[in-house]
Simulated assay, not measured.
Amino acid sequence: MGWGMCVLGALLRMHCYRILGPQYTFERSVIREHQLVTSGPYAVVRHPAYTGFEVFHVGLLVVQFGQGSWAWECGVLDSWAGRVVVAGWVLYVYKLVVAVFRRCAAEDEMLRTEFGEKWVRWSQKTTGRLIPGVY
């Protein structure tokens, strides 16, 4: 299950990169001649690349720490030091997940400012930021 989530999340993210083309940047920005993309996965949720990011990272945690994983089988979770390292990694991934939620809100505001009524109409049809009907 974990590997499937990793692959699914990565494929969704790659698909979004391709759809956005040069509009995809790692910084929040609006480039010259920026167009609001509302088709494909962007017709389902407003930030599908981040959905892919989240699915990948949850899958990664399942792969790394689920029953039958290396962490369970090698006994690293039997020591306090191992549990501290694992907790640190889980906290780091949690921080990434929370950062994505914050970034979605900031990007929505930036796109609303840039595209105005067009963004408002799209956001009314595509109400989910990451998960349809949930968030």
Rank of each mutant, 00 (worst) to 15 (best):
G2R: 04
G2C: 07
W3T: 14
W3K: 04
C6V: 15
G9E: 06
L12Q: 02
M14W: 06
H15N: 05
R18W: 08
R18T: 08
G21L: 00
Y24H: 13
R28H: 09
S29C: 11
I31E: 06
R32I: 13
H34C: 05
H34M: 09
V37A: 02
P41I: 02
Y42K: 04
V44F: 03
V45P: 10
V45G: 03
H47T: 01
P48R: 01
Y50C: 03
T51E: 00
F53S: 11
F56Q: 09
F56I: 07
H57Q: 15
G59V: 00
L60P: 01
L61V: 11
Q64A: 15
Q64C: 12
F65M: 00
G66N: 07
G66I: 11
S69N: 06
W70Q: 05
C74Y: 04
G75T: 09
V76N: 09
V76P: 02
L77F: 04
G82M: 13
R83N: 14
V84M: 14
V84E: 10
V85K: 10
W89I: 13
W89D: 03
W89Q: 13
Y92W: 12
V93R: 07
Y94R: 08
Y94W: 14
Y94A: 14
L96G: 05
V97N: 04
V98A: 13
V98L: 14
A99D: 15
V100A: 06
F101H: 13
R103G: 04
E107R: 07
D108A: 14
D108R: 10
E109C: 05
L111Y: 09
L111G: 11
R112Q: 15
R112L: 10
T113Q: 13
E114I: 01
F115W: 06
F115S: 06
F115K: 01
E117D: 14
K118Q: 10
W119N: 08
S123K: 09
S123F: 01
S123I: 01
Q124L: 09
K125F: 08
T127I: 02
G128N: 00
G128D: 00
R129D: 01
R129P: 02
R129Q: 11
L130M: 05
I131D: 01
P132K: 01
P132R: 00
P132S: 05
Y135F: 10
